[in-house]
Simulated assay, not measured.
Amino acid sequence: MHGVFVDANESLAVIFERLEKSGDPKVRINRNPDITPDQYPKLLDGAAIAIVDHTALPTEVAKKCTGLKHVVFLGTGARSYMNPEELDELGIAVHLIKGYGDTAVAECAIALMWEAARGIARMDREMRAGNWLREDAMQLTGKTLGLIGFGGIAAEVARIASGSGMRVIAWNRSPKKHPKVEFVDLDELLTESDVVSIHLLLNDETRGLVSRACIEAMKPGMILVNTARGAIVDEAAMIDALKSGQIRHAGLDVFNVEPLPADHPLTKLPNVTLSAHSAFRTPEASENLIGAAWAHCRRIAKGSK
């Protein structure tokens, strides 16, 4: 049994090579992160395992990948790139990696929250253009942070925010308990929170969950942070709320279309801070990620014997 890392950037490729052990299944690394889905059949060339960072794998393309039995997806958001149920019907199992970047993503969410509160990125842009922009910021100490969804990342966000003097409340689809976090229903979270940060997986139940009605129910002048998946939020409603001031500022690491087109409406709004789906990209998280990918490959190879 052998595999192919189909879309490795150089930093992940180097870690992948370094973590290889004697006796590991043979995995060829394609050092090109910008492949297109139609390249899968040729790249895999009969391989049983595909390690995928971010390249979409449509079901129709997967049907052409003779020999493919396992997809090791580098993260938890595989549904943004493929349909696991349809692949399963083809005999292709999709393996996810959880928890590898909880701290990295949480720190990014906190950074976006603080930037949204202070407006530093906008001041930087204006000063480079020769404008001395000064506006009142939002002081976050004593404010309420509402977490929509509560897993490992949200727990890390809660830890950091609590330590900075914020009240933390959360809503989760299943009951949870966590120190220094008050769990409330979604309606209460929307009306009570000065900052709302989203921490849900994308699936049929969460797609569009933060709807226009939800956004209209939020506290006027609040901050919205999304490091989860863009499709969880009604994008058109969010843009309208940013224009009206219902949302003071949005800090976004994820989008409906990625890469975000240069002419996208979000790029034209001054009260949005954009980052390129990079919340999880730290050396520590990458090390955890690739270590877990190798663990999947070893387990798969062992089970195939």
Results as ranks from 00 to 15, higher is better:
E107I: 07
E284M: 10
A213H: 11
M82V: 02
G149E: 10
W114Q: 08
A154E: 01
P58G: 11
R79V: 12
V168G: 09
F150G: 00
I92K: 00
A93N: 03
M1C: 09
G151T: 02
V233R: 01
I120F: 09
E126K: 12
K42E: 15
R122L: 15
N203F: 12
K98W: 12
D253C: 09
D88H: 12
A104P: 08
C297K: 00
P270H: 06
T273M: 10
D38A: 14
G23L: 13
L12Q: 06
S275Y: 05
E17R: 14
E284A: 15
S80Q: 14
T103P: 08
A121R: 13
A48R: 00
D204S: 13
K302G: 11
D38F: 00
L242D: 04
R159P: 07
L19V: 13
G152R: 03
E107D: 15
N9M: 07
L269W: 05
A241F: 01
M1E: 09
Y81D: 02
T59R: 02
A47M: 00
L269A: 07
D234N: 15
E284Q: 14
V105K: 00
R248I: 02
E126F: 13
L96C: 06
V233K: 00
D45E: 10
P270N: 08
K63Y: 00
C214T: 14
N83P: 03
W294H: 02
V196S: 06
G146S: 06
V72M: 01
M138A: 09
H54C: 08
A109R: 01
D24N: 12
T103I: 11
V181K: 00
V6I: 12
R128N: 13
